[in-house]
Nucleic acid binder design. Structure first.
Length: 257
DNA sequence: ATGTCATATCCGATATGA
């Protein structure tokens, strides 16, 4: 089975791109981020017509995440992360699909740093790690998929110097990400492409796509049972070059049944 | 390169978040 993650940067503006990607690549499960729309305006009918059941956690204007399943209805398990009741950002949704636990994650960007947004990012990462530990304790096959807004290693960015002051690359961000992989979660893209040089995001500005000035921030983290079934992990890079593309490309893993 | 894009607000601009 194939499980994909795609930061679509606005489901309203991106719906034709999303539907053609679903039709052309037929992922079994698709985790979406940055819906930028409310629960009421989520295009559930169009997605159902494409053959996908869905759960979603929307928000007006920004954030928003969803889990799509081909020919199945995901069963919601959790909405949002514990630990900060006043946090109303729609950034985390967890569901069960055919025996697989799936989380869709839109981790805070954290810029500018230092500052309150960066502090929020680090607190959010701590809360995510706590939730990941709870899932771990259930010993179920699980995948934590999404836009982590973290460049894990220097080999995951086209220019270390250009991004040195960015929240995505700060030692605190990296250390919080490595705490997750240190807990035993497998970064699937990194496992399949250990040499690096694989990007999932290219900025709209300054001709970043044309210069291949990108980096890797969309990650698929696998629990041990899921990691044992890992066949391959790839980026649907060509979708970044289409008309009216998102600034992220879809990423996916293939797991043995 | 202060470079692009999507969304919201009150209808053509500016603000926000990325």
């Amino acid at each position: 089975m194939r499980i994909a993650s795609f930061n679509i940067n606005g489901i309203k503006a991106r719906l034709p791109r999303l539907l053609e990607w679903l039709e052309e690549t037929r992922p079994d499960i698709a985790c979406l981020q940055e819906l930028k729309t409310s629960d009421e305006t989520f295009p559930a009918q169009e997605i159902e017509a494409a053959g996908y059941g869905a759960v979603w956690h929307g928000q007006k204007g920004f954030n928003g995440v969803a889990i799509l399943a081909r020919g199945a209805q995901p069963q919601e398990v959790a909405r949002g992360l514990d630990g900060e009741p006043e946090d109303e950002h729609s950034r985390y949704l967890e569901a069960e699909v055919n025996g697989l636990r799936v989380a869709t994650i839109y981790l805070p960007n954290g810029n500018p740093c230092p500052g309150p947004k960066f502090d929020y990012k680090l607190r959010w990462m701590k809360r995510l790690r706590a939730r990941a530990a709870e899932i771990w304790a259930e010993e179920v096959p699980a995948i934590l998929a999404g836009d982590y807004n973290v460049i894990p290693y220097d080999r995951d960015v086209w220019s270390v110097g250009a991004m040195a002051d960015d929240a995505l690359m700060q030692p605190e961000s990296r250390s919080a990400y490595r705490a997750l992989t240190g807990d035993g979660w497998t970064d699937a893209l990194a496992a399949i492409h250990p040499a690096g040089g694989v990007w999932t995001y290219w900025d709209y500005q300054a001709g970043a796509w044309q210069r291949d000035a990108g980096f890797r921030i969309d990650h698929l983290l696998l629990s041990p049972i899921a990691a044992d079934r890992l066949v391959t992990a790839q980026v649907d890079k060509a979708y970044r070059g289409r008309e009216k593309a998102s600034d992220h490309a879809p990423v996916w893993v293939e797991l043995r049944d």
